[in-house]
């Protein structure tokens, strides 16, 4: 097994370093956007969520080896459906529980 592993693992962990830098940059960008109050609330929220989604991709591809599998990549399929349902749960709950703006917390 030695050989197969080292075949893909180069001498230096470039991918990891790039991933790390990217994740720090994305985090800092969101941080700055919020604390500097550069944009309106809605824009800010949309942008920081998008930055978060990019972070997921960084983790998945640079660290979690999402592309690796033996045979069909079932975990990726399940993960995609999972993300759909996450949106349904979180988005759906907020939508439902807002009661069309009739109920104020």
């Amino acid at each position: 097994m030695e050989s197969t592993h080292s075949a893909h693992a180069g001498r230096f962990p470039w991918a990891h370093i790039v991933g790390y830098i990217l994740s720090l940059v994305l985090t800092a960008a969101a941080f700055w956007l919020v604390l500097a109050h550069k944009a309106g609330l809605a824009t800010t929220l949309v942008v920081i969520v998008l930055l978060g989604v990019l972070q997921i991709l960084v983790q998945l591809f640079f660290f979690m080896h999402i592309t690796e599998s033996d045979g069909p990549a079932w975990h990726t399929v399940m993960l995609l459906v999972g993300f759909l349902f996450v949106v349904a749960i979180v988005g759906g709950s907020i939508w439902i529980m807002s009661f069309g703006g009739q109920v104020v917390a």
Binding site: V81, F85, W95, G100
Partner: peptide, 21 residues
């Protein structure tokens, strides 16, 4: 399997979520 995940509110229509919901 997929759609069964997107119908749950039908158990509490009377709770008073908005008409769109």
């Amino acid at each position: 399997g997929i759609v069964s995940y997107l119908v749950w509110v039908h158990h509490f229509f009377t709770m008073g979520a908005s008409a769109d919901v």
